[in-house]
Simulated assay, not measured.
Amino acid sequence: MELDDLDFYEEILHVRDGKGGKSRHIPMNKDLVGVLEEWLEYRDDVNTKKVFISQRKNALTVDGIEHLFRSLSVKVGIPDLTPHVLRHTFAHDLAERGESLQTIARLLGHTNINYTKIYVSPSREETRAAVNKLAGERYS
Protein backbone atom coordinates (compact mmCIF):
# COMPACT_ATOMS: atom_id res chain seq x y z
CA MET A 1 0.00 0.00 0.00
CA GLU A 2 1.36 3.40 -0.96
CA LEU A 3 0.62 6.85 0.40
CA ASP A 4 -1.30 7.72 -2.78
CA ASP A 5 -3.68 4.83 -2.00
CA LEU A 6 -5.04 6.68 1.05
CA ASP A 7 -7.72 9.31 0.51
CA PHE A 8 -8.40 10.81 3.91
CA TYR A 9 -10.85 13.39 2.53
CA GLU A 10 -13.15 10.74 0.99
CA GLU A 11 -12.09 8.14 3.59
CA ILE A 12 -11.32 5.63 0.84
CA LEU A 13 -8.51 3.10 0.57
CA HIS A 14 -7.36 1.99 -2.87
CA VAL A 15 -6.35 -1.66 -2.95
CA ARG A 16 -4.14 -1.79 -6.05
CA ASP A 17 -3.17 -5.41 -6.24
CA GLY A 18 -5.38 -7.39 -3.90
CA LYS A 19 -5.86 -11.12 -3.80
CA GLY A 20 -6.16 -12.39 -7.34
CA GLY A 21 -4.56 -9.19 -8.68
CA LYS A 22 -7.84 -7.29 -8.31
CA SER A 23 -8.01 -3.57 -7.71
CA ARG A 24 -10.81 -1.92 -5.73
CA HIS A 25 -11.73 1.02 -3.52
CA ILE A 26 -13.01 0.34 -0.03
CA PRO A 27 -14.25 2.77 2.61
CA MET A 28 -12.22 3.39 5.75
CA ASN A 29 -14.04 3.69 9.06
CA LYS A 30 -13.20 6.44 11.55
CA ASP A 31 -11.01 4.11 13.64
CA LEU A 32 -8.85 3.18 10.65
CA VAL A 33 -8.56 6.80 9.54
CA GLY A 34 -7.41 7.80 13.03
CA VAL A 35 -4.89 4.96 13.36
CA LEU A 36 -3.44 5.61 9.90
CA GLU A 37 -3.10 9.33 10.60
CA GLU A 38 -1.28 8.56 13.85
CA TRP A 39 0.95 6.04 12.09
CA LEU A 40 1.88 8.51 9.35
CA GLU A 41 2.88 11.09 11.97
CA TYR A 42 5.01 8.49 13.76
CA ARG A 43 6.39 7.09 10.49
CA ASP A 44 8.03 10.42 9.73
CA ASP A 45 9.50 11.35 6.38
CA VAL A 46 11.23 8.34 4.85
CA ASN A 47 12.54 7.54 1.41
CA THR A 48 9.63 5.35 0.29
CA LYS A 49 6.02 5.85 -0.73
CA LYS A 50 5.03 2.65 1.06
CA VAL A 51 2.70 3.18 4.02
CA PHE A 52 4.25 0.46 6.16
CA ILE A 53 7.98 0.36 6.64
CA SER A 54 10.59 -1.79 8.33
CA GLN A 55 12.63 -0.82 11.38
CA ARG A 56 15.30 0.33 8.94
CA LYS A 57 12.77 2.73 7.36
CA ASN A 58 12.62 0.74 4.10
CA ALA A 59 9.52 -0.64 2.41
CA LEU A 60 8.18 -3.62 4.36
CA THR A 61 8.80 -6.83 2.40
CA VAL A 62 6.70 -10.00 2.33
CA ASP A 63 9.35 -11.66 4.51
CA GLY A 64 9.13 -8.73 6.91
CA ILE A 65 5.34 -9.06 7.14
CA GLU A 66 5.64 -12.81 7.76
CA HIS A 67 8.19 -12.17 10.51
CA LEU A 68 5.93 -9.52 12.05
CA PHE A 69 2.97 -11.91 12.12
CA ARG A 70 5.06 -14.74 13.60
CA SER A 71 6.18 -12.39 16.38
CA LEU A 72 2.64 -11.13 16.99
CA SER A 73 1.37 -14.70 17.00
CA VAL A 74 3.63 -15.57 19.91
CA LYS A 75 2.90 -12.35 21.81
CA VAL A 76 -0.90 -12.65 21.60
CA GLY A 77 -1.07 -16.45 21.88
CA ILE A 78 -2.80 -17.08 18.55
CA PRO A 79 -0.78 -19.90 16.95
CA ASP A 80 -1.86 -19.46 13.33
CA LEU A 81 -2.10 -15.67 13.10
CA THR A 82 -1.69 -14.61 9.47
CA PRO A 83 -2.95 -11.77 7.27
CA HIS A 84 -5.45 -14.26 5.86
CA VAL A 85 -6.80 -14.95 9.36
CA LEU A 86 -7.39 -11.21 9.76
CA ARG A 87 -9.21 -11.14 6.41
CA HIS A 88 -11.37 -14.08 7.49
CA THR A 89 -12.12 -12.42 10.84
CA PHE A 90 -13.06 -9.16 9.09
CA ALA A 91 -15.53 -10.97 6.83
CA HIS A 92 -16.89 -13.12 9.64
CA ASP A 93 -17.42 -10.15 11.95
CA LEU A 94 -19.28 -8.22 9.24
CA ALA A 95 -21.54 -11.22 8.62
CA GLU A 96 -22.13 -11.63 12.36
CA ARG A 97 -23.28 -8.00 12.50
CA GLY A 98 -25.82 -8.63 9.74
CA GLU A 99 -24.03 -7.30 6.66
CA SER A 100 -25.13 -8.86 3.39
CA LEU A 101 -22.96 -11.35 1.54
CA GLN A 102 -22.98 -8.94 -1.42
CA THR A 103 -21.46 -6.15 0.69
CA ILE A 104 -18.87 -8.47 2.20
CA ALA A 105 -18.00 -9.88 -1.24
CA ARG A 106 -17.45 -6.38 -2.58
CA LEU A 107 -15.20 -5.42 0.35
CA LEU A 108 -13.15 -8.60 -0.13
CA GLY A 109 -12.94 -8.13 -3.89
CA HIS A 110 -14.85 -11.30 -4.73
CA THR A 111 -16.63 -11.48 -8.07
CA ASN A 112 -18.23 -14.81 -7.13
CA ILE A 113 -20.29 -14.75 -3.95
CA ASN A 114 -19.61 -18.46 -3.41
CA TYR A 115 -16.05 -17.53 -2.42
CA THR A 116 -17.44 -15.21 0.23
CA LYS A 117 -19.55 -17.96 1.80
CA ILE A 118 -16.35 -19.73 2.88
CA TYR A 119 -15.37 -16.74 5.00
CA VAL A 120 -18.69 -16.41 6.74
CA SER A 121 -19.43 -19.99 7.74
CA PRO A 122 -20.69 -20.08 11.32
CA SER A 123 -18.57 -21.33 14.19
CA ARG A 124 -19.60 -24.19 16.47
CA GLU A 125 -20.65 -21.66 19.12
CA GLU A 126 -22.80 -19.77 16.63
CA THR A 127 -24.58 -22.90 15.43
CA ARG A 128 -25.19 -23.91 19.07
CA ALA A 129 -26.58 -20.44 19.86
CA ALA A 130 -28.88 -20.68 16.83
CA VAL A 131 -30.27 -24.03 17.94
CA ASN A 132 -30.65 -22.82 21.52
CA LYS A 133 -32.90 -20.01 20.29
CA LEU A 134 -35.46 -22.73 19.63
CA ALA A 135 -35.34 -24.01 23.20
CA GLY A 136 -38.57 -23.44 25.10
CA GLU A 137 -39.16 -22.59 28.71
CA ARG A 138 -40.08 -26.22 29.53
CA TYR A 139 -36.58 -27.34 30.58
CA SER A 140 -35.14 -23.98 31.60
Rank of each mutant, 00 (worst) to 15 (best):
L36M: 11
T48Q: 05
H67Y: 15
Q55D: 15
R43E: 04
V35C: 11
W39C: 09
Y42A: 09
H67D: 15
S71N: 14
I65H: 04
K50L: 10
H67Q: 15
R43N: 11
L32E: 13
W39G: 05
R43T: 05
Q55F: 00
G77E: 06
T61A: 07
E66F: 11
R43I: 06
V51I: 14
S54G: 08
F69M: 06
L72W: 12
R70I: 07
V46H: 05
E66V: 10
L36W: 06
L68E: 06
I53G: 02
L36A: 10
L60G: 05
R56H: 11
S73D: 04
L60Q: 01
F52E: 04
I53T: 08
G64C: 02
S54H: 03
N58G: 13
V46K: 03
N47C: 07
L32N: 08
N58F: 09
I53H: 07
K49N: 14
E41R: 15
K57G: 01
V46R: 13
L40M: 12
H67M: 13
Q55V: 00
G77A: 00
L60R: 00
N47Q: 12
V51R: 00
L60T: 03
K57S: 08
E38P: 06
G77Q: 07
Q55T: 01
S71G: 10
E38C: 10
V33I: 13
L72Y: 10
F69K: 01
N47W: 13
V46L: 04
G64K: 07
V35W: 13
S73I: 02
A59L: 03
L60W: 01
V51H: 03
L32C: 13
F69S: 05
I65P: 05
V76A: 04
V33F: 02
K75F: 04
H67P: 09
Y42H: 14
I65S: 03
K49M: 12
K57P: 03
V46G: 08
V74T: 09
D63T: 01
F52P: 10
